[in-house]
Simulated assay, not measured.
Amino acid sequence: MIDLFLIGIGTGNPDHLTVQAIKALNAADLVMIPRKGTAKADLADLRRAICAEVVTNPATRIAEFDLPVRDVANPDYHAGVDAWHDAIAEVWKDTILAQIGQSGRVALLVWGDPSLYDSTLRIAGRVGSDLAISVRVIPGITSLQALTASHAIPINEIGSPFIVTTGRRLRDDGWPECVDTVAVMLDGECSFQSVPPAGVTIWWGAYVGMEEEIILSGPLGETAQKIIATRAEARARHGWIMDIYILRRG
């Protein structure tokens, strides 16, 4: 039996690790670290730094693997993602078998938290079709929590709901009905440009929780172009970007 621990590590600040996460890392026989290419080497570097700082068990093994690249040219988005997840699951399985065989405790460090717009649990389910595994989630701080903390704002108004969605859904479907607050993730195209700006405030952040953190906020009509320019410059400087924002009407 493989005990697979999916450990939320927050959004880049090692101080975001919970005591539960540190205990799980030190109980692991194997910690797997994905490599996403030279453009995103910072992400692997951060995972290595976290392990170097908190893993004190000399028996814990660290193994890196190259993450398969998704075929973004596939016109069928869901089919493309499914094929990508299948490929990742195969790499996980091969790495586990090569390192510890079919029994032991394996930890994966998940950026943010495995519960929110993350497919780690779905990929783990694919691995479970070939290996006997049990999955345990160690929750972490999400990018949404880090964003609201950086701006020192609540996510919702008193007694009011909010929706978490993607940039693609905001762009294609418009502002969700029945809510005044929308949190937007996975937006590579600054889809807030599709929103009529009158009466809308935006709170935006990139690399939230990391040393490189950038936050901007203000009326959407006045702040949108500043965010677009800042985002483009930051992406060019780092070679990658992770950002998230909240929109609120009224």
Rank of each mutant, 00 (worst) to 15 (best):
I2H: 14
L4Q: 07
F5D: 10
I9T: 15
I9K: 15
N13F: 04
N13S: 12
P14V: 02
D15W: 04
V19S: 14
A21M: 02
A21G: 04
A24V: 12
N26G: 06
D29Q: 07
V31D: 06
P34V: 01
R35W: 09
G37N: 04
T38A: 03
A39I: 05
D42N: 00
D42I: 08
D45P: 00
A49L: 10
I50D: 04
C51T: 04
A52I: 14
V55D: 10
T56F: 12
N57A: 04
N57Y: 11
A59P: 06
I62E: 09
E64Y: 08
D66C: 08
L67S: 15
V69P: 03
D71K: 10
N74Y: 10
G80A: 03
V81H: 14
D82E: 15
D82K: 13
H85A: 08
I88R: 09
I88D: 08
E90C: 00
V91R: 10
V91A: 02
W92Y: 08
L97Q: 08
A98E: 09
Q102L: 10
S103N: 10
S103V: 04
S103R: 07
R105V: 13
R105N: 09
V106R: 05
L108P: 08
L108Q: 12
L109F: 11
G112T: 07
D113V: 05
T120N: 09
R122I: 03
R122C: 01
I123P: 08
A124R: 08
A124V: 09
R126N: 10
G128E: 03
S129I: 08
D130G: 12
S134Q: 10
V135K: 07
R136S: 15
I138G: 04
P139G: 03
G140M: 12
I141R: 12
T142S: 12
S143H: 06
L144D: 01
L144T: 07
Q145Y: 00
Q145I: 02
Q145H: 12
L147H: 06
L147P: 06
A149P: 03
S150H: 04
H151K: 06
A152T: 00
P161C: 06
I163N: 11
I163S: 13
V164E: 00
T165Y: 12
T166G: 12
G167P: 08
L170T: 03
G174L: 09
E177G: 00
E177S: 13
V179H: 09
V184S: 04
V184P: 04
M185D: 12
M185A: 08
L186K: 06
G188H: 01
F192E: 00
Q193K: 14
S194D: 02
P197T: 06
G199K: 10
G199W: 13
I202P: 01
G205S: 13
A206P: 05
Y207L: 05
G209V: 03
E211A: 12
L216Y: 02
Q225I: 03
I227E: 00
A236Q: 15
A236R: 14
G239D: 08
G239N: 11
W240G: 00
W240V: 00
M242W: 08
D243S: 11
Y245P: 05
